[in-house]
């Protein structure tokens, strides 16, 4: 296997409105030429050492990059797909040397596990599930949750991996009888799982028993809200939502993210904090990621915006670089880095 290496970053931190907050660390150029769709960061064990690696996904190739030094990356493995393109990378926390991907055209048709042979010399892929899959999320303790089918035939399934990625166990959660669009774990309540549904409800499951505990309506102000993060504190659920369908024309600017609080006992909820763009900036939420108390979003304008959820305001804006709009953004799970991607395959790694 001939090693493919990235170029060292030679660009300044560009004309971000808060240039001190984002420092460009390195840049990966995916040479495959096909459209870039996602990025993720995870630890991978290489020659007995756990390395903080980057996974990139193009339409038909997923690649694992290992760090050579702080500024360069070497491609270690590539998994190829011939029939169905990749839609998203699905990292599974607490599993070593395994990552999942969702494949499909507009909707997910397959979920596959990507791993390598025990001698580390060959890439392997295993089909985990197929069908009309609506949502998937990797959970702590080596679990993967997915929902498939619609209404009465909907199945919500938890798959548990062994430490080496093998021996999968399956368990089903009770269906809420409305299509589940997204999942989120609940910080502070590891046995709870949240889902958002097509009817603007948030549902809560007990992951141990599979029970559906509650269905909570969160209002019709914003359709198709996506739940990114949930915290359980003092008997309440704090939920970070994004609003891809919010109108841009609201007088105070439409919220890109919003923090709401729900009392799970009564299902009553109130908005705590809207996270809007600074004045003069326009755009709707296109794609984003929340980690700890930081939220990052790619906007329809092609700019990336970052909010400190505790401070309550936008802390950094990253306009398109080299006239290329941003198309996806992820927080690195392994350090305090932001991974920003463009459709042409360029991935920029920023320290935040």
């Amino acid at each position: 296997q001939s090693p493919e290496q990235t170029e060292a970053a030679d660009l300044p931190a560009c004309n971000s409105l808060n240039p001190g907050r984002l420092q460009l660390v390195s840049k990966l150029k995916n040479p495959s030429g096909s459209c870039s769709v996602d990025v993720s960061a995870m630890c991978w064990e290489i020659a007995g050492f756990k390395e903080p690696c980057i996974i990139t996904a193009c339409e038909y190739i997923v690649s694992l990059w290992k760090p050579l030094d702080t500024r360069q990356w070497e491609k270690l493995y590539s998994w190829h797909f011939t029939e169905v393109p990749v839609l998203q990378i699905v990292p599974v926390p607490d599993v070593c040397n395994l990552v999942c991907v969702a494949l499909g055209n507009l909707e997910i048709r397959e979920i596959r596990a990507l791993l390598c042979s025990s001698d580390g010399k060959r890439e392997k892929q295993v089909l985990l599930s197929s069908g009309n899959i609506k949502a998937v999320l990797g959970l702590t303790e080596r679990r993967l949750v997915s929902s498939s089918g619609t209404l009465c035939d909907q199945q919500v399934e938890i798959m548990t991996f062994a430490e080496d990625g093998g021996n999968k166990e399956k368990q089903f959660l009770m269906s809420p009888e409305e299509t589940v669009l997204t999942f989120a774990e609940v910080q502070g309540r590891q046995e709870a799982l949240l889902g958002t549904t097509i009817m603007n409800n948030i549902v809560i499951w007990n992951l141990k028993t599979g029970q559906l505990l509650k269905k909570m309506h969160i209002g019709d102000s914003y359709q198709a809200s996506v739940c990114h993060k949930a915290y359980s504190e003092m008997g309440l659920l704090f939920v970070v939502l994004s609003h891809p369908c919010a109108k841009e024309s609201e007088p105070l600017g439409s919220p890109v993210f919003q923090l709401i609080v729900i009392n799970p006992k009564t299902t009553l909820s109130v908005g705590v904090m809207p996270y809007c763009l600074p004045q003069g900036q326009a755009g709707r939420f296109l794609e984003g990621d929340v980690k700890d108390h930081f939220a990052a979003a790619v906007l329809t304008s092609g700019t990336i915006a970052i909010w400190d959820l505790l401070l309550g305001h936008c802390t950094a804006l990253l306009p398109p670089v080299s006239d290329q709009h941003w198309s996806f953004v992820k927080w690195s799970g392994t350090d305090s880095h932001l991974l920003a991607g463009q459709k042409d395959g360029n991935i920029f790694v920023y320290r935040y």
Binding site: N206, L236, I262, K265, V272
Partner: peptide, 23 residues
């Protein structure tokens, strides 16, 4: 946020809802 907006709050909501929900 207060109980006027959200109703009575229980610190054991998860356990209580698990007892109330169908198995």
């Amino acid at each position: 946020c207060n109980e006027a907006d959200l109703g009575p709050i229980s610190l054991n909501w998860f356990e209580e809802l698990s007892l109330e929900a169908p198995p």
